[in-house]
């Protein structure tokens, strides 16, 4: 699913531009992964802070995962750009209006489920860890706020 473009590409040239932009996002993902990995090792050395080993392993795994995912997507996007047939096949696969519609519906459903899960996790988890209700409540508000801002921006454009 493409989070950056709201309109599907109608031509191969448009899709090539989208992929070129997507490659920059791939690089950003790799950099985020490297930063995540280094933060886990640097923070305990710079500030006097001991990190739980399980959490440290989880963060490292997250960082490495992001690096490999970013590199994989970058290579895939580069190979698409080198071959006209590949770019057309990828455009059809990722920009087909039915697939875009399915993706939008799936995204809408998972966002709703995420909201419900956050609400109940905060509500029930708050009994045991009071910070949870604050964090989960904050995330629900962030979601609703970002929805309102995005709605306002797109209502000006459309």
């Amino acid at each position: 699913m493409n989070f950056w473009y709201t309109k599907p590409a109608r031509t191969d040239a448009e899709y090539q531009k989208m992929i070129q932009f997507q490659k920059k996002i791939d690089v950003l993902v790799v950099v985020t992964g490297i930063l995540t990995f280094f933060i886990v090792y640097m923070i305990p050395k710079v500030v006097d802070f001991s990190m739980n080993e399980n959490i440290s392993g989880l963060y490292s795994g997250l960082g490495i995962g992001l690096v490999f995912a970013g590199i994989g997507k970058y290579l895939q996007h580069t190979s698409w750009l080198k071959n006209e047939q590949s770019i057309k096949a990828a455009r059809l696969k990722n920009n087909d209006e039915r697939i875009v519609e399915i993706g939008r519906k799936a995204y809408q459903m998972s966002a709703t489920l995420l909201l419900i899960a956050l609400y109940f996790l905060g509500l029930i988890g708050g009994f045991f860890e009071p910070i949870l209700i604050l964090v989960m409540g904050g995330l629900v508000w962030l979601f609703l706020l970002s929805y309102c801002v995005a709605f306002f921006i797109y209502s000006k454009k459309m």
């Binding site: 059809l92 696969k93 087909d96 209006e97 039915r98 697939i99 519609e101």
Partner: peptide, 20 residues
Amino acid sequence: DVTRQTIISLESGKYNASLL
């Protein structure tokens, strides 16, 4: 410029085409 699956879905009435 769509996938064959989209044509199948259109023919079976599972999906409604956009105006374009």
